[in-house]
Design a protein around this nucleic acid. Structure first.
Lengths: 352, 352
DNA sequence: TTGAAAGCGGTACCAG
DNA sequence: CTGGTACCGCTTTCAA
């Protein structure tokens, strides 16, 4: 009795009794079902309104056999619950997922990423979208074992027992390819010492991109210049940039893989006495649209949260509504070259 | 039968049959209830695991009489569903609400702001937090009428029939006072022509703050210089700023009431040939922490999304769990004066 | 200790 | 056209 039930909610039977009809009639009258005479229907509706009757959502769901609810979980910072307010990527994923879900008539539940074991199974969900699953992710495992369709990445699905894998769908990026694309571009633009700011988290993105950077450097016999941040935060990120730029033979290009306000980064670089793109080519991984309004506009790498979320929801809904469809969707990152890393007017400032 | 039910989910009875016991025993064994002999309990658990049994969440909720789910709706742009990805304020509200809810063992459902009438009532919720309710908000009305506790602002609750009002709680700001505080500060710092960029939406915040600005100007016989934007968007906002600054007798202070990346704004102002705070004092309404890392750091007005969400959830949960508590909570905005609007080194650039 | 049966609040089938 | 009744899947009371 923890519920505040001073007003014991009026139920279907109450309406039925008050209207002098049966439960069925009330149900039909209210849902526009059956073929009742208009008079009965109106009468029931009037009584229902007078009593302030509202159907119990849980009861109808139990009957319906589905909940029209999709779960959304971002697992990158599993231990640090929900630090990601300021991460545009996650915000946009949330927004886009919600929008796509609503378009299909589904609601979205933001899932706990930590907490008592299995606690997420207490939430009545039809499907789940798990972003940045951790290794051997228990959430992915649990939902799949419970027969709840999941969209995650291919790696996460591969880790799950085959017999439960059928309900899994995936959305994926080739992070390594995206990183190499940017590095190649910077190299082509004349960069010889490319510094990178990356994250040091469990996210597949960070792990793959850091690896790609190291491999890329190794192939060319270049010394990696990388700062790995264990957690997001403006201050730490700016400090990492400052340190990278203060190195003995300073970098001539900077590629950030963590979210940071692009105009702020630009401002900071200038305060350190470097010009963009003159002294330093710049590419930011970001979803912040401010990047194209700065002077110079900043080259960006985007992982398309909107499209990803849309695809994830479509995959889920197709599966739920029994439509055959793709097992998953592989995306390519969206790399936009702008003046901050463009080659033309580069006034060589090679002091290597 | 739209559900994909090729695997007809194993139920409690199935486990009971397989284990050769009754439903009760299974339930007790699995939930650690009753006083069963350890042997029975283990046997049942083993069978359940072997069968891959997972309790049906909806059924337990129906039984339990509550769902441990809180709804969250932002109503400002009711017609333009979910444009607010890039609005730090909403992102932080979402994050903080989720965090606070999870701390109490509740999940959060992001609610549709448009769609078929009443569609939100189909979602099984224990309570709802409505941000920026519109006038005579149907969502607030519906939930309250359905006996679902709601947190909104005082105005929204005042508009609802008295008999359903009891379940309403509020969180509120005196937006007018916050705006006047900033204007007074700018005036004290020497500003004579304060320009304002505001929103032209249904949000209580925008309506109240615009009114406060006009009143403040009228009291002093000043001409208002205000741009009202019907929708968010970097481009429009920057353009509004540009136009305001291009006025014949250009403003000597700028106060933005709409979200915009503070470092980007600073950059834009400089490109227009004005220095901050030398030529132009600047105060931004924003939740973007980048504001304090620019040069100069930017004065900000914050409406504390984190604290607001926390309070809203506490109010809701207190009500739900039958605890007596405050009917609501009135907050004061957080105004932080930084160098962008500080008086000391102001090198007078009065060209009035 | 265990199990039968009565709900939780609706919806849907089918006989009247 | 209407109403009785079974049922969705689980929990809980109560008798055995």
């Amino acid at each position: 009795m923890s519920q505040s039930d001073r007003t014991p909610r009026v139920r279907l039977v109450d309406v039925a009794r008050a209207a002098g009809v049966s439960k069925t009639t009330v149900s039909d009258a209210l849902n526009g079902a059956g073929r009742l005479p208009a008079a009965t229907r109106e009468h029931v509706q009037k009584v229902a309104r007078a009593l302030g009757y509202r159907p119990n959502a849980t009861a109808r769901l139990l009957r319906a056999g589905h909940t029209r609810l999709l779960g959304l979980a971002a697992r990158e910072y599993v231990e640090t619950p929900w630090v990601y307010a300021d991460l545009a990527y996650f915000s946009q994923i949330v927004t886009a997922t919600t929008q796509a879900a609503l378009a299909h008539g589904y609601g979205v539940v933001l899932l706990p990423t930590y907490g008592p074991d299995d606690c997420w199974l207490d939430i009545p969900l039809d499907g789940v979208f798990v972003i940045d699953p951790v290794e051997g992710d228990p959430m992915v495992r649990d939902f799949l074992a419970a027969g709840v369709p999941v969209v995650a990445d291919r790696r996460a699905l591969a880790e799950v027992p085959v017999e439960t894998r059928e309900a899994g769908r995936w959305v994926d990026f080739d992070y390594g390819a995206a990183v190499r694309q940017v590095l190649d571009h910077l190299e082509a633009a004349g960069a010889e010492r490319i510094a990178v700011v990356a994250g040091a988290t469990t996210a597949c993105f960070h792990q793959q991109s850091v690896r790609a950077y190291h491999e890329w450097c190794a192939e060319r016999g270049r010394e990696p210049r990388i700062a790995c941040l264990p957690a997001p935060g403006v201050e730490h990120t700016l400090q990492a940039v400052t340190e990278l730029l203060a190195a003995p033979a300073p970098p001539d290009a900077l590629f950030t893989l963590v979210e940071l306000s692009p105009p702020l980064l630009l401002d900071t670089i200038r305060r350190l006495g470097r010009s963009v793109p003159g002294d330093l080519l710049l590419v930011c991984t970001t979803e912040d649209s401010a990047a194209c309004y700065t002077d110079p506009p900043i080259s960006t790498l985007s992982f398309l949260p909107g499209e990803t979320a849309q695809a994830a929801v479509d995959l889920l809904v197709d599966r739920l509504e029994g439509r055959e469809g793709d097992p998953g969707h592989l995306f390519s990152a969206d790399f936009r070259v702008r003046a901050s890393s463009a080659v033309p007017e580069r006034r060589g400032a090679r002091r290597g």
